[in-house]
Each structure stands twice: as structure tokens, then as C-alpha cells.
Simulated scan of single mutants.
Amino acid sequence: MASQKSQKTVMVTGASSGFGLETARRFAEKGHKVIVAARRKERLEQLKAELEQEFGQCCVYVLPMDVTSEEQIDSMIDSLPEDFSEIDILVNNAGLALGLEPAHKANLDDWHRMVDTNIKGLYLMTRKLLPGMVERKLGHIINIGSIAGNYAYPGGNAYGATKAFVKQFTRNLRADLLGTQVRVTNIEPGLAETEFSLVRFGGDKDKADDVYKGTEPLTAEDIAEAVIWAAEQPQHVNINSIELMPTSQAWASLAIDKVQG
């Protein structure tokens, strides 16, 4: 457990499931104060109750909000109690993929939603909390990217592009924040089994299950461990990025369209 001196205040977005939930759990297990943020308040309240039962009266604060709304971000974060107002670590986890159709068949509303959540939500949260971190000369922004931001695949179109934004935004933050003591990290998971595919396929469980059939994918716990490891490095060490895949996944060969005849 963290000592009072080393105890940090951590905010995790998208904390109602998957990577976010497990990341919040691991920080709470280590004795840190955790702000769990997501749209689904009932899931956050359930998580808070579970963490308090498992780890005792650990400090968990529920913050129901939509990261795509600048007004909600401003009002909810400005209303944080004093004990939670100085956030040391922001885990920008809120994000989603929708659809796997080729670009010319993709649903434009899905593209809008992915851009709003994966890009706009991430930079709004960062911009809101970053000034305080810089002023205190202490802080860590941990973004949850994806290997989709590094390697293209059919149907990845807008989703992959949003994660490429996360990668470059993280790098540019590192350049901007030189000399401030604020650290920035990008976590880039490969195939991982959470609610991710269920959301991507609009709740079609058969399609979602088929993605992982015959594989041993990463788990939410694996990603949470990567986040914790990056966060626990000494202050003079900045983990720029962590790219991780299950052993059952690797890069594919380049596709070639061969003309017949």
C-alpha cells in the first residue's frame, strides 16, 4: 500500500469497464486515491462499492460524465472536493471502435463518435488538467492508444486514425512539457478481450466472440499492469510508449491485389 507521502490522486476515464475498470482497481489496491469517470454512473457506484469491500475504505470518488462534453468536464472537475482536486495521474482510457466496414461503406455517424470520444475527449481532459500539473511541477498523462495507430488493417479506417492521433499527440506533449517534470506515456495494446468487440459490433456477441476464437488475447489486467508499471517508474524516468501484443498475434504481410488473367 502507498504511504501517505507517496499516495497519489489518479483519475481514470472510461472506468466503468475493461481497461479503465482494472486500472482503477490496481491503483486502489496500491493505496492511491482514485477518481473513476464514465457515463454509466450505476457501474461506477458498483465499482466503488466493490473496491471499498475488497480493499477497505480506500478513497474512490465517482464522477459521472461524458468526456466529449467540455461543459461537463469543466463543471464536474471544478466541483471535485479538495481532497481530490489536485490530480497527479490522468489515465485517458475512454475510447471505442465502431464497425469494421471498409471506408466507402462505413457509417459516418460511427466515425463522428469515434473522433469525438477518442480524440476530442482525450484532448479536452488533458487540457483541463495539464495546467495544474505544470504549476505543481508534478504529473503524469497516460494515454491508452492502440497498435491500430501504428499498423493499418482492413476496416480500421477512422478508428486507426484516431489512435494515430493519440500517438502523435502524446509525442507532442512530451516536446511541449520538457522542463516541467510532467511525464507522458502512450500504452498501445494489441488484441485484448474486453467489451471492445462487443461495442464495435453493436452488441453482436457471436461476432465479438469470433474475434478471439482460437487465441489467447491480452486481458484488461495485462493493460492495467502496463499502466501501473509506467506510473511507478522513478520521477526521472519517462516511459514514452509501451506496445504490447499477445504472443498469438504478430504483424501480417503486406496485402497485394493480383490481377487475374
Rank of each mutant, 00 (worst) to 15 (best):
G155P: 01
G156R: 00
N157V: 11
A158D: 03
Y159W: 06
Y159G: 01
Y159Q: 03
G160C: 06
G160I: 09
G160A: 03
G160T: 07
A161Q: 09
K163F: 00
K163L: 03
A164L: 04
A164K: 00
F165K: 00
F165T: 08
F165Y: 14
F165H: 09
K167G: 04
Q168T: 15
Q168M: 15
Q168L: 14
Q168G: 00
T170F: 01
T170I: 08
R171L: 15
R171E: 15
R171S: 14
R171Y: 12
N172L: 12
L173A: 06
L173M: 12
R174M: 14
R174I: 12
A175W: 08
A175L: 15
D176W: 08
D176L: 11
D176R: 12
L177S: 04
L177P: 09
L177K: 04
L178N: 11
G179N: 04
G179T: 02
T180S: 15
T180L: 04
T180F: 02
Q181H: 13
Q181F: 06
V182M: 01
V182I: 01
R183F: 07
R183S: 05
V184N: 05
V184D: 07
V184K: 06
V184R: 00
V184W: 07
T185F: 03
T185Q: 05
T185P: 07
T185H: 07
T185N: 09
N186F: 10
I187N: 01
E188Y: 05
P189G: 09
P189C: 07
G190M: 00
G190V: 00
G190K: 04
L191T: 10
L191M: 06
L191R: 05
A192F: 11
A192W: 06
A192L: 12
E193K: 15
E193D: 05
E193R: 15
E193A: 02
T194S: 10
T194I: 10
T194R: 11
T194Q: 10
T194K: 08
E195L: 12
F196I: 14
S197R: 11
S197M: 14
L198G: 06
L198E: 10
V199Q: 10
V199E: 13
R200N: 08
F201C: 02
G202M: 12
G202H: 08
G203R: 08
G203L: 01
D204H: 02
K205D: 11
K205R: 15
D206I: 13
D206H: 08
D206M: 11
K207G: 03
D209L: 07
D210L: 12
D210K: 15
D210C: 08
V211D: 09
V211Q: 11
V211H: 07
Y212Q: 01
K213S: 13
T215I: 07
T215N: 09
T215W: 02
P217I: 03
P217N: 06
